[in-house]
Nucleic acid binder design. Structure first.
Length: 492
RNA sequence: GUCCCCAUCGUCUAGUCAGGUCCAGGACAUCGGCCUUUCACGCCGACAACACCGGUUCGAAUCCGGUUGGGGACGCCA
């Protein structure tokens, strides 16, 4: 059995979007499963649209996801010679021919065909030019492209798709496609095949939008005398209107970077991505990396396209609810030490990190995360909703302010009183803090809830949170006392 | 227009290849309940789908044909 070799070949014309990330993930999974190799190849032959920034963005995104590659990144432009040689070979052996039709003529023909509702393919005007005719046109300096010559055969050409099954089409349906531009630069269809042959790619797993390309490329492998790899075409990712998701029409919500910046856990996002078009065949939805590598199969990839359930302006969900829910699952169930590392980065970015959290206060740090993580959706929440645990500059939300504070004028006297009582406690424990709070409520003949909810607002700025006395003990006597004493400023 | 692919709850899907155990299972979302000083978590429950029409068969979500619907491709982009 020869080594399995897969590749992920993005074109650097923008950020990595979730469809591309899923393609990379599936390739990566199979490479890992078979002990094969994953190759990253940047397909930058379109000089006009390729950018350095985009290359960096793609590499960063893959790294964030944890999709590591074994070879590369290779750059397609570095192999221009291979591409040109292959084109020449095809030309020399009669598998390709020069076409002198101008772009304008072709555009006009295409438009006319579209209007007449006729097939749009190339009409093969230059296919049977004699050597003399070609020489004549070249002497006249008429620019030419090179087209691949679809063999004149009856019947169907096709391939066995590991996801879709047998795919076939009539030879007569396939266009004599251009493989080299008039400026001498080879095009994707050719370069891609030449690179895959050189890189000894055994499996080409890509989106269904490449299905017609594959038909053409199968013919090129044959003409180039190379073995045809295994092909598999994955379902596309669509939006809720069933349009292909794209950078252009959807913006950053479909970019991997958005999820990194929104505080997603990388593996959680991979877990979401893999489920968009694949299932293990049972009810399992959460996988460790090892489990997923073991369970993944091409055969279980869905044939139909999946919808990325993102609703613009949804007040409750800023992206696909399932993605959020999977992230929440990992957030509250993952190893607390690992979570600690991720939250550390968030705290550092917001200048809230203290080195003692890695040292004498490590237990406090991890216990605090454990206490508050149940209510959070993303890593970002630790520095926003959870800010009061790490800093004094937290905001008091308007809603709890109105509901729990402003409604009770008496708090202006009660909290300084409570602060004094708390200050005197030698044992600032769950039991003692609760006893004192309830005692005060009894003395004042008010419901304990008024004290408790008011404290939550003053001490954390939030409407909701963990058990109040857990919060007090976690935040600590000194800070609690100080915060309770600021009560009057909230009424200002 | 031509060719290719696809079709189960709102969304992701199991079940389809080997027809009966499926008046269709799970997850997310939604709605109710329990828990609770808050909000979550957790637990319990509800709502909700085999696109349509024919055929084959004792029996079809599953096989066959057609219709409809959706998607993709048809670039001197990748």
């Amino acid at each position: 059995m020869t080594e399995t070799r897969l590749r992920f070949p993005p074109s650097p014309t923008g950020y990595l979007h979730i469809g591309g990330a899923r393609t990379a993930l599936y390739n990566w999974l199979y490479a890992k499963q078979t002990g094969g190799k994953l190759i990253l190849r940047i397909e930058d032959t379109d000089a006009e649209r390729s950018t350095e920034e985009s290359i960096q963005g793609i590499v960063d995104s893959l790294e964030w996801l944890g999709i590591d590659f074994d070879e590369g990144p290779y750059f397609q432009t570095e192999f221009a010679e291979d591409h040109t040689k292959a084109a020449q070979k095809l030309l020399d052996q009669g598998s390709a021919y020069k076409c002198f039709c101008s772009k304008e003529t072709l555009d006009a023909k295409r438009e006319a065909a579209l209007a007449a509702k006729k097939p749009l393919g190339y009409d093969r005007t230059c296919r049977n030019l004699t050597a003399a005719e070609v020489a004549e046109k070249e002497a006249a300096a008429i620019p030419s492209v090179i087209r691949f010559k679809i063999p004149e055969r009856n019947g169907a050409l096709g391939y066995d798709d590991v996801i879709l099954g047998r795919i076939e089409s009539q030879y007569s349906e396939v266009d004599d496609f251009v493989i080299v531009r008039s400026n001498g630069k080879p095009l994707y269809l050719l370069c891609n095949v030449v690179d895959d042959i050189r890189d000894r790619i055994s499996h080409v797993i890509r989106g269904q939008d490449h299905m017609t390309n594959t038909l053409k490329q199968v013919l090129m492998y044959e003409a180039l005398g190379a073995p045809v790899p295994v092909f598999g075409h994955m379902p596309l990712t669509l939006d809720t209107k069933k349009a292909k998701i794209s950078k252009r029409s959807h913006g950053e919500i479909v970019s991997v970077q958005f999820y990194r910046d929104s505080g997603f856990i990388p593996w959680a996002f991979n877990n979401f991505l893999v489920l968009l078009g694949w299932s293990a065949g049972n009810d399992q939805e959460f996988f460790t990396k090892e489990e997923l590598i073991k369970a993944f199969t091409f055969e279980r990839i869905n044939k139909s396209s999946a919808i990325f359930n993102y609703r613009k302006n949804d007040p409750k969900f800023f992206t696909d609810p399932k993605a959020i829910s999977i992230n929440e699952h990992y957030l509250r169930s993952m190893d607390i030490t690992k979570l600690g590392l991720m939250v550390k980065k968030e705290l550092q970015a917001d200048d809230l990190w203290l080195d003692t959290y890695d040292a004498e206060r490590k237990n406090w740090y991890l216990q605090t995360l454990d206490l508050i993580r149940d209510r959070f959706h993303t890593l970002k929440d630790f520095t926003t909703l959870g800010r009061a645990y790490f800093a004094d500059d937290f905001q008091v939300d308007e809603k709890p302010l109105k509901k729990n504070v402003l409604k009770h004028e008496g708090l202006k006297e009660w909290f300084p009183d409570l602060a004094n009582r708390y200050e005197k406690l030698s044992d600032f424990s769950l039991e003692e803090t609760e006893r004192v709070a309830r005692e005060l409520a009894t003395e004042l003949e008010i419901k304990p809830g008024i004290i408790i909810n008011g404290m939550r607002t003053v001490v954390t700025g939030q409407l909701a949170g963990p058990s109040m006395f857990d919060i007090l003990v976690t935040i600590g006597q000194e800070k609690v006392v100080a915060r309770l004493r600021t009560i009057a400023t909230l009424f200002a």
